[in-house]
Design a protein around this nucleic acid. Structure first.
Length: 303
DNA sequence: TGACAGGGGGTGT
DNA sequence: ACACCCCCTGTC
């Protein structure tokens, strides 16, 4: 049994079956490109990430085949959790092929540049928390907020490594409801602290609301999310796309706004109009198209 | 090494 | 259209 390099408390690498080969840049874009905010690149080139009570390392070998490792003792639970998180039962290569790239030259080159790009299936509540933090913040800052929330207010997970490193999960919504708003502000949340505190109080007063929202049809779920303080159409679509597998969700942020204006001749369109355009032009998998456009714009930035 | 200005993947009024 | 917050980044 070979151990993960550099840390004897992590399990041997195990193949992550069901995924296509991914290049390191596509893996990086998937894990750290704005869908999720709790993945960190390790010195050995692997990625360490957390969700719910799980902590996992992921890497691609020279051929692009993915492997995962978990703290020793947590492998049994991690195996199913990894499969669910990476949505291994969903064939994103086939879905990308079903996008209208044959009649859309820009989408065609986005698809060609990020082969195998995937959408993650993150825990719904944690995804909501992450995107409540996202307003006018870049990825690095969102990651910092969530890291502080976890370190100060999240339970130590059973997956904590005996090597000295304590791993904290994010606080749950009931736990957040008990945190004074001032303490939230101490986690660099700024004006987002009030949104998060109020959302936590609302969820505490409405048991089952989050679960019902996750299970509702797309349009109804989006409307429900938009009733939460700090959640507009963009955040709602991110939560549904990255935290509920709703591939018809089409988040319109300033990057997508610029892309659609510049590459699709839609200057002057408002975000709500563009969201409608996206769903009409890209179809029921619009969210996957959005992820490709987004990845392209991040890499090429307006050139 | 430190100070400073500019800007930031959005929402609510 | 502008406030909300305040950290990060680049630059001098």
């Amino acid at each position: 049994m070979t151990r993960a390099p550099g840390d004897a408390s992590w399990s041997a690498w195990q193949p992550l079956k069901g995924l296509p080969a991914l290049t390191p840049p596509v893996l990086a874009e998937t894990l750290d490109g704005g869908q999720a905010f709790r993945w960190y690149r390790q010195s050995d080139g692997s990625w360490q990430g957390q969700w719910s009570e799980h902590a996992v390392r992921v890497r691609a070998d020279a051929a692009g085949r993915l492997g995962w490792s978990a703290p020793v003792g947590s492998e049994a639970g991690a195996r199913a959790a990894v499969r669910a998180y990476f949505a291994t039962s969903v064939d994103f290569v086939a879905l990308a092929d079903a996008l209208p790239w044959r009649s859309d030259p820009h989408l065609a080159r986005c698809r060609a540049e990020f082969p195998g790009l995937r959408l993650l299936r993150q825990p719904f509540g944690e995804t909501l928390l992450g995107f409540l933090c996202s307003a006018t913040k870049q990825i690095v800052q969102i990651k910092q907020m969530l890291a502080l929330l976890a370190a100060r207010h999240g339970a130590v997970t059973a997956a904590a490594t005996p090597a000295g490193e304590k791993l904290h999960r994010l606080p749950t919504w009931p736990e957040i409801a008990a945190i004074p708003e001032a303490a939230l502000r101490g986690c660099l949340l700024g004006f987002r602290a009030r949104y998060i505190a109020e959302t936590a109080r609302f969820l505490a007063a409405n048991p089952g609301w989050l679960e019902a929202t996750e299970a509702a049809p797309y349009a109804a779920a989006r409307e429900r999310l938009c009733t939460l303080p700090g959640v507009g159409g963009k955040v709602a679509d991110c939560v549904l796309l990255f935290g509920a597998g709703r591939l018809e969700a089409f988040p319109v942020d300033v990057w997508i706004l610029k892309t659609l204006a510049r590459r699709y001749g839609l200057e002057g369109w408002k975000p709500a109009q563009l969201a409608q355009f996206g769903r009409a032009h890209f179809g029921p998998l619009a969210g996957l198209a959005q992820q490709y456009l987004f990845a392209w714009e991040r890499r090429h930035g307006g050139r």
